[in-house]
Design a protein around this nucleic acid. Structure first.
Lengths: 138, 138
DNA sequence: CATTTTTTTGGACTTTGTAAAGTATTTTAC
DNA sequence: GTAAAATACTTTACAAAGTCCAAAAAAATG
């Protein structure tokens, strides 16, 4: 049984070809949009409906197998690196997105903050800047 | 001359009724979507095109008079509190968004991070959780 | 294996945002 | 102030991202 199959079982969701293919696609191409993942999945399975992709991404995100990030000015991106407190660097020029480990290491911002009564479960950090390639004028 | 007029002049952009009304609307209702702001503006000016709202929000954001935040799963939100390094708490349940001062005070995350060669100009932090009202089951 | 639950499909629809061309307003220079 | 030039606004059309819904298919359950 594949690792992905096991993950799905552990989350209590039925195992389908589409879900396995989405998990593989996200692993191959982290920080991809739903549309890009749909292309990847179709390369494996043939025809897959757009709705199925959105359903799968929604379920897997909800179950914590995937993480969704939504940078300003682009569609939502998905990645399978979950469980650690890493953040993202995004290029304002080309949109390239790369992982970056948390500055403080242990959910830094989550603790030292006036929480206004909120129960906080996640601190999402987006660093905006210009990537090396765009600095070089490529 | 109103403060908003002065701000626009200082940014070198022509002063129009629509721009002033958008600035007032954002001040009255920070963390609003373009659509909500359009309603506010129309309450003041009567008919205003959707495109004008988007144009104005774009220009003012670009000039640094407004700030745009784009939480996952909702349209972009705008606020007029700029220039300080504050962040946002967002309720996963009702979407309520409130300001929160930066935990460390001085662009904390911007400095201590492996920047992968990026030139970083902003660290955007979104804290996700459940607001007091939703905790109370309202 | 049959039943029940859940997912996937396919199409239409909504929301959010952008583009382009023409008209109106604001600014700038007298 | 007034006229010319620059800029913004309106209107219409379009595109992208995502959702809704009912029927068909697949997976889980007993």
């Amino acid at each position: 049984m594949s690792d992905f199959t096991k993950s799905l079982r552990e989350c209590g969701v039925p195992v389908t070809a589409q879900r396995l293919a989405v998990l593989r696609a996200v692993t191959r191409r982290p920080h991809s949009t739903a549309d890009e993942l749909a292309d990847e999945v179709r390369g494996e399975l043939g025809t897959v409906s757009r709705q199925a992709i959105y359903n799968v991404l929604g379920v897997l995100t909800e179950k914590g197998l995937l993480r969704r990030i939504q940078p300003s000015g682009s569609a939502a991106l998905y990645e399978n690196r979950v469980g650690d407190n890493h953040h993202h660097l995004i290029c304002r020029s080309c949109g390239k997105t790369v992982d970056v480990d948390c500055a403080v290491g242990h959910t830094p911002c989550l603790t030292a903050v006036d929480d206004a009564g909120f129960i906080i479960d996640e601190a999402e950090v987006l660093y905006w800047g210009i990537c090396p390639d765009c600095q070089a004028g490529k």
